[in-house]
């Protein structure tokens, strides 16, 4: 009687297993291919990230070193005799302002200073307050750059 249960059990298991044929199995790649996909894809993403970072470094390096050195803003050279500002030496009776020199330098310096404002932080701490003394900045920079 135990043999009968065992025989039926064997028969049922064999019949059920026999229903599974190779044609019924879905396509699955071998393990070497299936598991190789994920790391390769991950490595591709790493390669793209590295390439992007390298491009960023190259671009930044090019922008920093390739751009010309900001040329110091020189005032329109009025001549050797008038280069030192002498506020007290040139009286201008027509203006109420106590400093008479601004009318000659004022049209040149504010416009050029406005154009060179992005490069101002690179020049150094000596130009940290350009708005307060516009004429002092102009006169100090040519002396600093040749050296």
């Amino acid at each position: 009687m135990t043999d009968e249960v065992e025989r039926r059990l064997r028969s049922a298991l064999t019949a059920r297993a026999g229903q599974i044929t190779a044609e019924r199995l879905r396509f699955e790649p071998p393990p070497t291919v299936a598991t190789a996909r994920t790391p390769v894809r991950r490595r591709w993403w790493a390669a793209i990230a590295v390439a992007t970072a390298a491009a960023g470094v190259v671009l930044g390096f090019t922008l920093l070193t390739g751009s010309p050195e900001p040329t110091p803003v020189l005032p329109a050279d009025p001549g050797p005799g008038t280069s030192p500002p002498a506020p007290a030496a040139s009286p201008a009776p027509s203006f109420a302002d106590p400093s008479p020199s601004p009318p000659t330098s004022a049209p040149a310096t504010p416009s050029k200073a406005a154009g060179s404002t992005p490069s101002a932080p690179e020049t150094g701490p000596e130009t940290s307050a350009p708005a307060a003394t516009g004429t002092r900045q102009v006169t100090a920079k040519p002396q600093a750059t040749p050296g």
């Binding site: 297993a17 599974i20 044929t21 190779a22 199995l25 699955e28 790649p29 071998p30 393990p31 070497t32 291919v33 190789a36 996909r37 390769v40």
Partner: peptide, 27 residues
């Protein structure tokens, strides 16, 4: 090479996979 499957001869695990997969799925 990964897309082709086995570039330099079938690895042992792939041979095992092709020969034993069906019986293991039945089990």
């Amino acid at each position: 090479a990964a897309g082709r499957g086995d570039p330099g001869g079938a690895p042992a695990i792939n041979e095992l996979y092709h020969s034993r997969r069906l019986s293991l799925v039945r089990l």
